[in-house]
Design a protein around this nucleic acid. Structure first.
Lengths: 200, 200, 200, 200
DNA sequence: GATGAATGAGTTTTCATTCAT
DNA sequence: TATGAATGAAAACTCATTCAT
């Protein structure tokens, strides 16, 4: 942990990022953030020059969160790429399922949410999120390449396309699961992805 | 055409629905709608009791627009379901591509956008949009069923799942294409969908 | 009855006056009047140049209504002034009681309501209503004078004062009955008035 | 005095309550309150969640004001209840008279004004004001009971009725004095009240 | 005379941000 | 660094009134 100031800043960031995830960028008000973070409003502006800034930093925060969660060494020590893929999607599914059970709602992917809302309005946000998805695409591209090498898949597709499509399919599941309050969309997405890859 | 009042109402609706599509529900202000529709603000409230109402009616408007566009008799007279699927996605692709060329932006699917932003905040919106997607799922389910009957696909999947997944994959393409400003995501999605179906 | 135009005007007047009585001048909107009177809004302005005007004319309308109701020949043919007083207040009481039973509310005296709300804001309204009350004061002054002549009362008060006080006490009953939803305030007021007069 | 914020809140409250007294609830606009209180409009909403709330709190404020003014220990140390009654009404009369002299207008009782305008529209306001009048009724009931005990009155009336009627008569004086711009209505009311009580 | 439609000027309320201590 | 208080600008919505046919 860091100094008190660093702790406060992190608390604001975490609170804001979570609220944006749950309620969208535009519906969350600074008042709501500072109330939930239990800080003074002027303090908020001491750490972040604007609401936009906290959203921008919040994207980074969420990226780190999701990397820790989804791309951690434990999961990635699994040598079988298809099992890795299954574990990855299983983790996503569990998060959404728990949200749904706990709150009756399901928030989908924070990057999908924010980009859908803001990518045409804020170039900085768009670029940040696009980069995050590019990483995810590469991650799944590698899975496919490894699977190919290991003879675990029967298809002969462009790995770049597969990487993109895996992320695309998961983004679609994010949208559908949120709309329908149906976490199983992620499990169904896994089926599509495996069919796409020709996983045996 | 209808009475002057009906024309005005339709003009407001069209203007609002388009603005919501382009900029999200929360970022579009009533002032902006009335300015673009070239009407007085009080007139707006004579036709719609609230901004929420115009969004709700705007969803219906967009549904009709998309039905006219995507589920029209011409397209659906095509007996080959796979060609129908290709034509459907081709139309979507063309719209997005033209937007991109004309405005440098790409707005994705209006229902994906609005549901991502609002489905957890407004139950009425959520239900309306969920129903629209259910229709699309059925549409693609039927395509798959017909394709199966006609021996055009090799897979043996649950048609309900396929219907859902086609819509899911297209929703993902909507998100990705908007974020990346890359209309080709829809063409890539078609590849995934055909692989999923096992289209020969 | 008069021409169609006169009928329409009277309908507007009656509707407006009733609404003002029930909900106050400022809370009643022109839209509400025209909706309840089932006329077009432009028609309203054909008959009355403003909302203020319909209120002013509405005061006259209410004055005529109350004169017909409270100062009619039948009631005033009663030679005993105390019985006349009792009948007068009995009529008022019955109106309020019926309102209360029918609608759960009780609207009090329309002149008390409007003058309390508007007498400091609109001199024309103030004068109109003041004149109406002066008539009522004279009416009760005469009752007292007759009662004195007929030896029906034991007090020796200034009849002008008594006239004023009878109206004042009834105005107080109007306020209290409306606030407490208790029509019996008028019956209690009768007691006070009779004590004041020294009615045997 | 309290903190700056408390002072500001009190200033708003006092300003608003006075304006409502002078001009009615519905005619006073938030803009007018903030201008007179010399604060920013957003500050208003930091201290009161709505115009309705400031009116509700304003009723309490006025209740405290009137208690301090009319039910203070000095006045109530007078052992003779009739003299107490006279002093009470004398105070009311003086306030109204001074208003009249200073501003050419006379505002009557703030509770009478607000209840006449709002009791059928806002149950919370109705209850608050009804409670205030119940206190005044009890106050005057006690005066009558004491006067009876001390043999200062000749009547044999139900003290509850007398309490109610004293308040009713004063409410009537409030209405009449405001309408006629005649503070003396309160002195006349005192006559009626003493006759009612049979004060010697 | 009647009516569908339009509108300028408010009115309440909100919000991101800054000030002052 | 922390915080109680303040604020300009804007947002949603309303209202009395008038226009045009």
């Amino acid at each position: 942990m860091g100094t008190k100031g660093e702790e406060t800043k992190k608390c604001i960031l975490q609170t804001a990022a979570t609220l944006f995830w749950e309620h969208s960028y535009n519906l969350v008000k600074v008042d709501q953030i500072v109330k939930k973070a239990q800080i003074n409003k002027a303090s908020f502006y001491q750490y972040f020059k604007s609401k936009e800034q906290v959203a921008l930093d919040g994207i980074d925060f969420m990226e780190n969160m999701s990397k820790d969660f989804l791309m951690n060494p434990q999961l990635n020590s699994e040598p079988n790429p298809i099992l890795r893929l299954e574990a990855f999607i299983g983790l996503v599914y569990n998060v959404q399922k728990q949200m749904h059970e706990a709150e009756g709602k399901l928030y989908g992917c924070p990057f999908v949410n924010m980009s859908t809302e803001m990518s045409n309005e804020n170039e900085e946000m768009r670029e940040k999120i696009a980069k995050i998805f590019r990483n995810f695409e590469e991650y799944h591209q590698k899975i496919y390449e490894e699977a190919k090498e290991q003879g675990l898949v029967s298809s002969e597709l462009d790995p770049v396309l597969v990487g993109r499509q895996v992320v695309g399919i998961l983004n679609g599941a994010s949208v559908s699961s949120k709309l329908k309050k149906r976490p199983e969309e992620f499990l169904d997405a896994l089926i599509s992805i495996k069919v796409l890859m020709g996983a045996k």
